[in-house]
Write a protein that binds this DNA or RNA. Structure first.
Length: 569
RNA sequence: CGGGAUGUAGCGCAGCUUGGUAGCGCGUCUGGUUCGGGACCAGAAGGCCGCAGGUUCGAAUCCUGUCAUCCCGACCA
């Protein structure tokens, strides 16, 4: 490709809307342009990267036994009503109405379509297992699209669905995908980590996320410093740390006057009771029912754990008025003693003795409160958010934390959709059975952003070779000098005929401009044809990720470049 | 949806407080000089001042509404 003909509008300045590095660089380097919030156009360079990622994904899906299809973006409401998700999915679904006033959605995911399809056309156990996938746009009207490609409302996703006759089959399919995903992210040359995950709204039991490690990642990952346990904080299990257990004698409960003191910190400041000797009481509505969650004063509630435990659809913090009406006190004075609603107590509270909490009466607290004696729990469960330093749930190690970008997520769905959509088959005994399903997603466009997030420097992007839009850029220092241009042209054509993807920067620009652009768009190998070296019949070779420049003979360029590209790939 | 901020030329910004008919840098175009890390000189094009309404002799500027974008929180590939 001639740079003079390539559409890659680079920007000198950072567009003000871009906050994180991948968004800034993809805009500046001319890979993407925003059409509207969370919706982007991929320009030639950007789309080349997307296609490379897609191809790696496709190869590995095929290798794992997947079969590629293409399902519709426009999906009829009936399917979603049948699965029960038309109402559950809520505002996140883009909805539209056709001329006959029928409801449709732009597909946010494809369980409904694929399950219906498989149900209609698969009747026998002989046809299972089936692994069906597609790479296609998904539509989710996110509450807050963000960070360019990182969280779009339209994005490119690979989604595979597995259908097996039984749980053992699902285990095999799940394992195949687990392995395939590892191969994919290794081939993409990304630093990533597989973590245990919450299965969220999609449902199901077992689930793993593939996280590309990056400071700007939206997800927090905790991992053990001794064993290989790693999990999304949303999921990370908290155990009781025996070291924390308080051995004191149980004391008499006391009510103290605490005028104007509302927060845990107030009680620390005024009474010197450390936050770990206090208990906080949070009020929530779970599908309309008010409840209290109680945990140690210095801990955070993990709403996902609570929600999963309750099995409710909606969980949100109660408002002050509702709380006042039921408890007779405001937020800062709540406590489990005398609480009139169900109390869910965090596991860790069982290790506490003689702690302080609100008295459910404004401006009063209790001290020396004890679980069991002073109040009863509806249930004692793990509902706190794991933090750095917690004991590992699998060994005696301790948890560390890093941030990551979720680029892949695999789920065991079980019977959730096959039940709702009646996806059945006839087993060997002639009996009708429900198919056991799994689903497996990779955010292709997000992966591109994640790759940039992980591979850049002050000058621009540094593409990993397997997904670089071009392998080599050939830069004649002065395109008007015939000898330089001729050599550059010869090198360029040699690369092309050897199957190497190359750009020749034939633009009548100063060398500095061409170097800046080459760095910005992140082409892995740069061949510079300049006057000094050319006298020796040499050219310069620079790897984007290194600072030094090598001089090599013109006739050796092809073999050198091949060694770099295929050596690293 | 709650909180915060911003909309002025392709990009980055000034002008707004104190109304008087729009400016700077970069980019673009033309000519010339240059030519190994975003050159220089000369000239030029390019603006519904987000949109609508109001106040005023007069609005980018003041008022009201509205739309859009971005950031923080709940959502997710």
């Amino acid at each position: 490709m001639k740079a003079s003909e390539l559409f890659f509008p680079t920007l000198r300045e950072v567009p003000s809307e871009a906050e994180i590095i991948s968004h800034q660089l993809l805009l500046r380097a001319g890979f993407i342009r925003k059409t509207t919030a969370g919706v982007y156009t991929y320009l030639p360079l950007g789309y080349k990267v997307i296609k490379k990622i897609m191809n790696i994904v496709r190869e590995e899906m095929d290798r794992a036994g997947g079969q590629e299809v293409l399902m519709p973006i426009i999906q009829p409401a009936e399917l979603w009503k049948k699965s029960g998700r038309w109402d559950v999915y809520g505002d996140e679904m883009f909805r539209l109405v056709d001329r006959h006033n029928r409801d449709f959605a732009l597909g946010p995911t494809h369980e409904e379509i694929i399950t219906t399809l498989v149900d209609a056309d698969v009747q026998s156990y002989r046809d299972l297992p089936l692994l069906i996938y597609q790479i296609q746009n998904k539509y989710r009207d996110e509450i807050r699209p963000r960070f360019g490609l990182m969280r779009g409302r339209e994005f490119i996703m690979k989604d595979l669905y597995s259908f097996d006759p039984d749980d053992e089959g699902l285990d095999i399919s799940y394992h195949k995908m687990y392995e395939a995903y590892n191969r994919i992210f290794q081939r993409l040359s990304l630093q990533y980590r597989v973590v245990e995950a919450d299965s969220g709204a999609i449902g199901g039991n077992e689930s793993h996320e593939f996280m590309v490690l990056a400071e700007n990642g939206e997800a927090e990952i905790v991992y053990c410093d001794t064993c290989d346990y790693a999990a999304n904080v949303e999921k990370a299990v908290c155990t009781i740390d025996d070291q924390e257990s308080v051995q004191d004698d149980i004391l008499q409960i006391e009510k103290i006057h605490t005028p104007g003191q509302r927060t845990i910190q107030d009680i620390v400041d005024v009474f010197g009771i450390p936050s770990r000797r206090q208990v906080k009481t949070l009020m929530y509505f779970a599908d309309g029912e008010l409840l209290a969650a109680v945990l140690r004063g210095d801990r955070e509630l993990n709403e996902i754990k609570l929600k999963n435990y309750l099995g409710c659809n909606q969980l949100f913090m109660a408002d002050q008025e509702s709380v006042m009406a039921v408890c007779g006190a405001g937020f800062g004075s709540l406590g489990p003693v005398g609480m009139k609603v169900k109390i869910y107590v965090d596991l860790e509270v069982t290790q506490m003795k003689n702690f302080a909490c609100g008295a459910n009466e404004n401006d009063y607290h209790y001290t020396n409160v004890n679980l069991g004696r002073d109040f009863a729990a509806e249930k004692i469960i793990d509902i706190r958010t794991a933090v750095v330093g917690d004991e590992c749930p699998h060994c005696s190690g301790h948890l560390q934390s890093v941030r990551g970008i979720e680029v892949g997520h695999i789920f065991k769905l079980g019977l959730k959709y096959s039940q709702a959509l009646e996806a059945k088959f006839i087993d060997q005994k002639g009996k009708e059975q429900l198919m056991v399903m799994g689903c497996y997603g990779i955010g292709v466009s997000r992966t591109m952003a994640a790759a940039v997030e992980q591979n850049s420097d002050a000058n621009g992007i540094i593409w990993p070779i397997p997904i670089a839009p071009y392998h080599v850029i050939v830069v004649p220092v002065n395109a008007k000098k015939e000898d330089q241009m001729n050599t550059a042209q010869a090198v360029y054509e040699g690369l092309l005929s050897n199957g190497i993807e190359a750009i020749i920067d034939d633009r009548d620009e100063r060398a500095g401009v061409k170097f800046k652009d080459a760095d910005l768009i992140g082409i892995p190998v740069r061949i510079t044809v300049g006057p000094k070296a050319l006298e020796q019949n040499q050219v310069e070779l620079k790897k984007r990720w290194e600072n030094n420049i090598e001089l090599i003979a013109v006739e050796k360029v092809i073999s050198e470049v091949k060694a770099i590209i295929y050596g690293r790939e």
